[in-house]
């Protein structure tokens, strides 16, 4: 299919074919999630669930690719669905217009091959880790703050977030630094690349590792998190 011809060669024909069968749940359709959904859809990941209970507001316009003057006040998850209809109508995008909670997490996440953590609260990230572990689904974690970002790939039972966030209900630097336009795009790209490798069992992933990026000082550090 011509649409995917530039995906070829870096992936085999079989791998390209497989993509349409995968189900990926993207939790959060904001700074990270908007870019992630766009890239998953253009790659040809066949089934995407987009979860977000929020609507767009003006503070999202500096970085969230799904936000613009017309989408202000509209559901982020439904906007993702409309965007995917334009970008790649072959993709089934299921919007969930609810905030993920203890009560609904397992029902929302059930049946997916992979979960992508694109949320904005540290305690919600732990909720994803716990639910995904029970459901035996891997997670690709990403977070940003100002010039800084991080990515890790978490398999069921790894509990990597326990090492990344010793304070489970704490706040990150984003409260101090905000989030610009370029950091989410960078971290989202790495999350999608990790996701593709996990789905296809290719390459080396960031399992039990954390990639920590400081764009201000150009530090790109992969740290081992195994004790």
């Amino acid at each position: 299919m011509k649409r995917y011809i530039k995906n070829m060669n870096m992936l085999s024909k079989d791998e390209n074919e497989k993509l349409k069968g995968f189900k990926v749940c993207v939790v959060g359709c904001g700074g990270l999630g908007g870019y992630i959904i766009e890239m998953l859809g253009r790659l040809g990941i066949g089934h995407i669930t987009a979860v977000d209970g929020d609507v767009f507001d003006q503070t999202n316009l500096n970085r969230q690719i799904l936000s613009n003057d017309e989408s202000l006040g509209q559901s982020k998850a439904l906007t993702a669905q409309r965007r995917m209809e334009l970008v790649n109508p072959l993709i089934e995008l299921i919007p969930i217009t609810e905030r993920i909670t203890k009560e609904n997490a397992e029902a929302i996440l059930y049946g997916h091959d992979l979960i992508i953590d694109a949320v904005d609260k540290i305690d919600t990230r732990f909720l994803l880790q716990n639910s995904a572990s029970k459901l035996e689904i891997p997670i690709v974690h990403g977070a940003i703050a100002g010039w800084y970002g991080q990515v890790s790939t978490i398999f069921p039972g790894d509990n990597t977030l326990d090492k990344i966030y010793p304070i489970k209900d704490g706040d990150g630097l984003e409260n101090e630094f905000g989030n610009p336009s370029f950091t989410p795009a960078l971290i989202a790209s790495i999350q999608v690349s990790e996701s593709l490798k996990v789905l296809l069992h290719r390459g080396e992933t960031l399992r039990n590792k954390l990639l920590y990026i400081d764009l201000l000082e150009n530090d790109y550090i992969v740290m081992e998190l195994m004790e």
């Binding site: 959060g28 904001g30 700074g31 990270l32 999630g33 694109a118 949320v119 904005d120 609260k121 540290i122 990230r125 990403g142 977070a143 940003i144 703050a145 800084y148 970002g149 991080q150 966030y165 304070i167 704490g170 706040d171 990150g172 630097l173 984003e174 409260n175 989030n179 989410p184 920590y212 740290m223």
Partner: peptide
């Protein structure tokens, strides 16, 4: 020793 501060936004 290397110390990294927390990052949690999206």
């Amino acid at each position: 020793i290397s110390i990294f501060p927390p990052i949690g936004g999206n």
